[in-house]
Amino acid sequence: MTRSPRHLRWAVNGARTFDVPTDATRTVLAEIDRAVRAAHFRPDAPPHGSGAQAVYRRGSALGDVLIGGSGLSAITTRLGPLSVHGVVVVSLGERDPDSARVIISLVAGSHVGGDFVDAVEDALRLIHSRGVPVDDTGWSRAVDIERTSPANPRRATELGLV
């Protein structure tokens, strides 16, 4: 089910799924990395064998308790490491021999959903501007991603990504 980005900003953790040519995956991952870092997420090495291509974190558990529980998250979500907790997982899989499926999912931290959605939209704009053909299936809830994917919040938790 495709959801509107506006709904995903505030209500649920969202995920974006799209297919790109296999030979463009390096470019696509670089644009995602740039955009997610610009949204104050910092890269973290995914555990070996998790199936995640990349993991990005923002905030901390302490910040989540202090800021997220106080109602101040609307003011402080852009403060980077002092902001509420958020985890983004990027999954890359083969769709067919010539194309790869990319899933970028906010598996934790709905308080930073607005920044996440903006980052993903920005990355896709730049990917399109580079002439990379994208077969975009649009936005969905992260929990609607296939249960075996590391981009699914339940599976990400099991794998220690959250």
Rank of each mutant, 00 (worst) to 15 (best):
S83T: 10
R58Y: 00
S99I: 00
D135W: 09
P5A: 08
R57L: 09
V120P: 07
V55M: 04
L161P: 03
A54W: 01
L79F: 10
D115T: 08
R16I: 06
V88F: 03
S83Q: 02
D23H: 11
A142R: 07
T25G: 01
H40A: 12
A54S: 09
L126K: 15
R130Q: 15
R57W: 02
R130L: 14
H40P: 00
L79P: 02
R57P: 04
H85I: 05
D135T: 13
D64H: 14
G114V: 07
L159P: 03
V65D: 10
R125K: 14
P150C: 02
L92T: 11
I67T: 14
G113V: 10
A108N: 13
W10N: 11
G51I: 01
L161C: 04
S110V: 15
R9G: 04
E146H: 15
A142S: 15
I127R: 06
H48D: 14
V55I: 07
L92Y: 04
F18C: 05
R6G: 11
P150A: 02
A45L: 12
G63C: 07
V102F: 05
R42F: 09
L161N: 03
I103G: 01
D118F: 06
R26M: 07
A156C: 01
T17L: 11
L124M: 13
Y56V: 02
D23A: 08
V117M: 03
E146V: 15
P153Q: 08
E31S: 11
L82K: 08
R9W: 07
V102P: 02
T137G: 06
V107T: 10
A74M: 04
R6Q: 15
